[in-house]
Design a binder for these strands. Structure first.
Length: 186
DNA sequence: TATACGATCACCT
DNA sequence: GGTGATCGTATAC
């Protein structure tokens, strides 16, 4: 399997968010490895986007969004959950894709069923399950270690993509209306 | 130093 | 539909 290269992320954020659907998020942690197909993403793009954390400008927190694309932006929210984002666009342009949902397919080799599918719905639960926290902030996802993304399941190209408004950004004035949330219809 | 609030989730009505 | 848990970050003082 091929690790997504930096040039994949160095593009328009909405295109990256859409193209990440069906790709596999891989997490290595203490000898375990999880492989989750991304099913839901959101785009956050530029200082003009009032829902984007970088709308407040460059700060210690948002600095990573201005870094090279392909890095992880992981932050704590509500004091209890973490959210995983992938930095996009060119260096010094702040943007990222929030990974909101993914699915781990259980093996179907035995007649008894084997492990069931695990649906990771919501950015907080996804990070909780995959043991992703702020230690992975600024991690380079193009290295193919600890946390990375592999190219899309070819079959996923055939599935329809649903666009909708982003979640939890009611404060973002007109930006709340942007259809920058992308779902894979399984 | 103090305060307000959030890219969430579980649980309630 | 609404609320509370819980703490890092930004902003006001």
């Amino acid at each position: 399997m091929k690790v997504l290269p930096r040039k994949f992320y160095s593009r328009n954020t909405m295109k990256v968010a859409r193209d990440l659907l069906g790709c596999f998020l891989i997490r290595e942690y203490r000898g375990k490895i999880w492989r989750a197909m991304i099913t839901e993403t959101e785009a956050y793009r530029g200082e003009e986007d009032l829902a984007c954390h970088a709308s407040k400008g460059r700060t210690p927190r948002t600095e990573v969004m201005y870094d090279e694309p392909g890095h992880a932006y992981v932050y704590m929210i509500y004091g209890m959950y973490h959210c995983l984002n992938i930095v996009t666009e060119k260096k010094d342009f702040p943007a990222a894709v929030l990974i909101r949902g993914a699915k781990i397919f259980g093996r179907r080799t035995s007649k008894d069923g084997g492990p069931p599918d695990v649906h990771l719905g919501g950015p907080g639960k996804l990070c909780q399950f995959l043991k992703i926290d702020r230690k992975l902030n600024k991690w380079d996802l193009t290295k193919g270690e600890r946390l990375w993304i592999e190219h899309r399941n070819p079959r996923a190209k055939l599935l329809a993509i649903k666009k909708s408004k982003r979640i939890g950004v009611d404060y973002a004035q007109h930006c709340r209306e942007y259809l920058w949330r992308f779902n894979l219809k399984l």
